[in-house]
Write a protein that binds this DNA or RNA. Structure first.
Lengths: 238, 238
DNA sequence: TGCGCCTACTTGTCTATACAGGTATGAGTC
DNA sequence: GACTCATACCTGTATAGACAAGTAGGCGCA
């Protein structure tokens, strides 16, 4: 069983190749379909196929040799190709703290997007957590996670005050197979919708955005673009 | 002073942006020229500008927000964006060993490509080292390095039997500013040209390639595509 | 056997063009 | 003050077409 292919076509191509690598149809050292073959079989342009293979090569999954072809990389033990950005790790030493807001089982009935992304039938349940991150006492980020309990069992049993969700997921699931959806900070309306928690914090978050009117030279103190939050951790089994 | 801009145009764009970030013209959080501005000022297509900015964002140098713009990322202390692949580290625990063949000062007169790449006048000298890597007793790779002595002083003074060239370079030079040229294994003719060292090893290396005639299904035992060697370590000062 | 040449194929790069979706801002309305 | 709307701009994605450079394999020649 595999998850629903993503919407973007280059992601579909990556998905197509990764699926065969994960299933064992393509083993280490074996030849991957060339760009032109992918063009014919998947009906995409060569630039799209090129992007997909190039990114997989950058992740260390494939190896490309100009003039020869593309091949499944040998197993590399140490280096993990997927770059993981963990805001908690990054700012921990700079006055970072976070608070756990929600930690519960959620049915996917409400959101059709979730059901599709995780390929779940209506009525199925997902582990859900919502954290707010602070830096120097100022609420900066909202981290919302949906985790398939089948691929990361025991997610909700954690004490997220001690172990961050990211740390747990890293320890329990093979990161090479993980698909993380990373987005920048939320626009104002979604923050309002999300943060019905404590009015003052919502105010602060929103005020930091509303301040932007008038001065656009630097977006640094509004967005803190270096840091991000992860919307959904969608981890493939196997 | 800066090094010669690379040949590929998307690398020129990256170079253009990185130079301003390194020089301090663009500080953390500040706005980077948009894709369309780069199109007009550097006379490249938007796809090229897009690729340059996208890769810099993947390296953690920039942060892009759709609909807003591109910004210089905040300083991130821990994570180093440049992914460094070190074959010695990767295979060390799997029967890996290497032998130092050449370790000397070389003038760049012979190669015009080298002089241009390092922006040196004819007659200038470069530190040079040539190692052969083995895995399970079989010679697998040739690692050839040219290092600018001004940016990595003391390179030749190392005992490369104890410290690999890569490890020394990592310790002495800021990797964020490094430009590594990574290539796959050499074609047959260049191996012949390079390896006038010991006939049997050259034979083995070449034989592993000549074996390919007839069976093309898997290139694994010929190339070992997962491992690479670095042709030139060209490290920018500052 | 070794060498150079040619052809077919593969990846790398670049361009022009197009559409989609997100965002900031100002004008207008309640 | 809060909201809606239109506009201008930005990034994300996708395509078709083109040229360059590298490689494998076949062929012929010395």
């Amino acid at each position: 069983m595999s998850l629903t292919p993503p919407a973007a076509r280059y992601l579909q191509v990556k998905h197509y190749v990764l699926e065969q690598v994960a299933a064992g149809t393509l083993r280490a050292g074996e030849r991957v379909p060339s760009e032109n073959e992918l063009v014919r079989s998947l009906r995409v342009s060569r630039m799209t196929a090129n992007r997909a293979l190039k990114e997989l090569a950058a992740d260390g999954v494939l190896v490309r040799v100009a003039g020869v072809g593309t091949f499944v990389a040998e197993q590399r033990v140490h280096a993990h190709p997927l770059e993981v950005r963990n805001i908690a790790d990054e700012i921990r030493s700079r006055g970072h703290e976070y608070r756990v807001r929600v930690q519960e089982l959620k049915t996917v009935e409400a959101s059709r997007e979730l059901a599709e992304r995780f390929e779940l039938k209506p009525g199925a349940a997902l582990d859900y957590s919502l954290l707010t991150h602070f830096e120097g006492g100022v609420p900066l980020q909202v981290e919302e996670r949906y985790v398939n309990p089948q691929v990361a069992p025991g997610y909700l049993a954690n004490d997220f005050e001690k172990v961050t969700p990211h740390e747990f997921l890293v320890s329990v699931a093979p990161l090479q197979r993980a698909e993380h959806t990373v987005r920048a900070l939320l626009p104002e309306r979604r923050i309002r919708r999300l943060l019905k928690l404590e009015a003052d914090e919502a105010c602060l978050l929103i005020r930091r955005r509303t301040f932007s009117r008038g001065r656009v030279a630097s977006i640094a103190d509004l967005y803190h673009p270096g840091s991000r939050y992860e919307l959904a951790a969608n981890i493939q089994p196997r």
